[in-house]
C-alpha cells in the first residue's frame, strides 16, 4: 500500500534521511521508532507530501506519488500538536476534509465522532476540550476523508503518562477495527512495541532493522537496536568455534555458548543477552555487584564481570554479599560494525 524507495533528504548540510527504503503492506500498522532527530518525522512528512525528497520515490497504492501535492495523496496525518483549527468547531474540524467530496458529510462527521467517543462534542471549540479529547478529534479529522494510509506523528507524546497508556490501547483497537494501513512515528519504544504489527528502527537517517516487535526485542540485528529497545548486555568478543546452531564466543577468557545466528568462526561479535535471561544465584560465573536499585517487584543490579559491565535482575535482596554467581543460559551474537 505504501512504499518508499531509497529516500534521501538533506537540510542544508545536515542529512536527515539517507537511502531509506521501507514498505507497509495493506492493513499493517508499522511503527517508525528512533531517538529524536533520527529523521523519522522527515520520512513521514515526505510521505505526506509536505517535504520533497532529494532522491528516492514514494509509492502509494502502486503509483508513484513522489510529485503529487499533499492534497492529492489521500493520506491522513495526525500531528503531535494535533493542529486543530481553532476557529472551527469540533464538527467543522472533522468535516474539513469532507468539503472536497460528495456524500452525507453530516452523517460521516457523526459517525467518526461516535467512533472516537466524542459524539456530544460536535459543537464545541477545540480549546474547550481536554488534551486527550483534542487528540481524538485530530484522529477523527484525519480519518474522515477515508485516507489510504494514516500517518501519525508522535500523537500521544503531548499527553501525560496515564492517559497515554489508555489512548494507546484505544488506538490499537481502533486501527485494528478499521483495518487501517498506518505509519506511526514515535520515539517511545514501549508505544511502538505495544501498537505496531512491525517496528522499523531508525538511526541517523538510516534504517537499522524492520521486524515484528517480539523478533526485534529478542533478535536485534545491530547493537543499536539491542540497546535502544529495553535493557541489554553487550559484551565484545570473538567467535572461537561453531557447532551446528551454536557458537562459542570468547569473552574475557571465558567461552560462552550462544545462538549462532549468522556468524562464522573468527568473527568479532557482541555477545548479547537481556538481563532477564540471566540466572542469578547459581552458575559458573561470578559478578561483583556495584550498586542495586530497588524497583518494587525486583532489584536491578549493576555489576561487573571481569571488568565488563553487567545488568542483572533478581527477585531477592542481593545486598547480603558483594559477589554473586550467575549463568547465561540464553545469549545471541550480534556482529560488531
Amino acid at each position: 500500500m505504501l512504499e518508499v524507495r531509497r529516500l534521501t533528504k538533506r537540510f542544508g548540510h545536515v542529512v536527515a534521511v539517507e537511502d531509506f527504503t521501507l514498505a507497509v503492506p495493506e492493513g499493517e500498522v508499522l511503527a517508525l521508532l528512533g531517538p529524536s532527530g533520527c529523521g523519522k518525522t522527515t520520512v513521514l512528512r515526505i510521505v505526506a507530501g509536505l517535504e520533497r525528497p532529494d532522491a528516492g520515490r514514494v509509492i502509494l497504492a502502486g503509483r508513484d506519488a513522489t510529485d503529487w501535492p499533499p492534497e492529492k495523496r489521500g493520506v491522513g496525518l495526525v500531528f503531535q500538536s494535533y493542529a486543530l483549527f481553532p476557529h472551527l468547531s469540533v464538527g467543522a474540524n472533522v468535516a474539513y476534509g469532507l468539503r472536497f467530496r460528495r456524500g452525507d458529510r453530516k452523517g460521516r462527521v457523526r459517525e467518526l465522532l461516535a467512533l472516537v467517543g466524542l459524539a456530544r462534542y460536535e459543537r464545541r471549540k477545540p480549546h474547550q476540550l481536554s488534551a486527550g479529547q483534542q487528540q481524538r478529534v485530530a484522529l477523527a479529522r484525519a480519518l474522515a476523508p477515508e485516507p489510504r494510509v494514516l500517518l501519525l506523528d508522535e500523537p500521544l507524546s503531548a499527553l501525560d503518562a496515564a492517559l497515554r497508556k489508555d489512548l494507546r490501547a484505544e488506538l490499537r483497537a481502533l486501527l485494528g477495527k478499521l483495518g487501517m494501513t498506518a505509519l506511526y512515528v514515535t520515539h517511545d519504544q514501549e508505544e511502538a512495541l505495544a501498537l505496531a504489527d512491525r517496528v522499523a528502527v531508525m538511526r541517523e537517517g538510516r534504517l537499522e532493522q524492520v521486524a515484528p516487535p517480539e523478533e526485534l526485542y529478542s533478535r536485534p540485528k545491530t547493537p543499536f537496536v539491542a540497546s535502544f529497545l529495553g535493557r541489554a548486555n553487550l559484551w565484545p568478543g570473538r567467535v572461537v568455534s561453531v557447532d551446528g546452531d551454536r557458537a562459542f564466543v570468547e569473552v574475557a577468557g571465558e567461552r560462552i555458548p550462544a545462538e549462532r545466528g549468522e556468524c562464522r568462526e573468527g568473527d568479532e561479535v557482541f555477545l548479547f543477552f537481556r538481563p532477564e535471561w540471566v540466572e542469578v544465584g547459581e552458575g559458573l560465573f561470578t559478578a561483583e555487584v556495584e550498586s542495586a536499585e530497588y524497583l518494587g517487584d525486583r532489584w536491578e543490579l549493576r555489576a561487573r564481570f571481569c571488568d565488563l559491565p553487567l545488568v542483572l535482575i533478581t527477585g531477592q535482596d542481593p545486598r547480603s554479599s558483594g559477589t554473586l554467581p550467575f549463568a547465561i543460559p540464553t545469549a545471541r551474537t550480534i556482529h560488531q560494525q
Partner: peptide
C-alpha cells in the same frame, strides 16, 4: 500561527490557496 495548521489542511485535501482562505485568513 502554527504552520502545521496549513499542513493539516493540505493533507485533508485543501490546495495551498484554499488552505489560506479557510485556515489562515479566518485566524
Amino acid at each position: 500561527l502554527d504552520p502545521r495548521l496549513v499542513e493539516a489542511a493540505r493533507t485533508l485535501g485543501a490546495s495551498r490557496r484554499l488552505a489560506f482562505l479557510t485556515v489562515e485568513l479566518p485566524l
